[in-house]
């Protein structure tokens, strides 16, 4: 399925597994139900990722996080915004691996997904065909800055910008 990151289309280095079998695959995404089994078979130098439903509580996933290189959060529909909050909680829990939104998102959600901590968006083929890449990139840049602190890097919001401007303007030791 087509994959995007903040800069555009991206090759997917991950393979999906329907169950716990991870074999010799270097980087494999397993379903949440199979995660414990997959981790038990994990070989040296192999990366394991998990696809979680957006109804999963972060507390259930937390014990596994140190061993995961990728977490994909399912978006059953673009209108179901739970994944945005889950992503925030995962980042707060210190997860530094790849965070992926998986489902029929729309370009108008691209900037939001990035701001909430997602690295990549994995789209169903039909959606990617209907909504080509340049629409995603244009939608990503719809707003030059946001009103919210704490989402994305500080230079992305007006409040931290104003704070930086105040600090620069204040007389102080050089």
């Amino acid at each position: 399925m087509p994959l995007l990151d903040r800069n555009g289309a991206r090759e997917d280095g991950w393979t999906r597994s329907e169950g716990a079998a991870v074999g010799n695959i270097p980087a494999v995404i397993v379903p949440w139900d199979s995660l414990a089994d997959a981790l038990a078979q994990q070989g040296d130098g192999r990366n394991i990722g998990v696809l979680i439903p957006n109804s999963l509580a972060i507390s259930a996933l937390a014990p596994f996080l140190p061993r995961l290189a990728l977490v994909a959060i399912g978006f059953p529909a673009y209108s179901d915004g739970r994944g945005f909050s889950l992503a925030r909680q995962l980042r707060r829990a210190g997860f530094a691996g790849e965070l992926r939104a998986s489902g029929p998102l729309i370009p108008d959600q691209f900037a939001y997904a990035l701001a909430c901590g997602f690295d990549t968006i994995e789209l169903p083929q039909a959606n990617a065909e209907r909504q080509p890449l340049e629409q995603w990139l244009r939608a990503r840049d719809s707003y030059s800055l946001t009103y919210q602190r704490g989402y994305g890097t500080p230079d992305r919001n007006i409040l931290d910008r104003r704070r930086a401007a105040r600090a620069a303007a204040a007389p102080g030791p050089r």
């Binding site: 915004g81 945005f84 959600q109 900037a111 939001y112 997904a113 701001a115 909430c116 989402y151």
Partner: peptide, 13 residues
């Protein structure tokens, strides 16, 4: 008003 405008996390409640 400002904080809620185009909120990245709370626009698909």
């Amino acid at each position: 008003r400002q904080w809620s405008s185009g909120h990245p996390e709370f626009s698909y409640l």
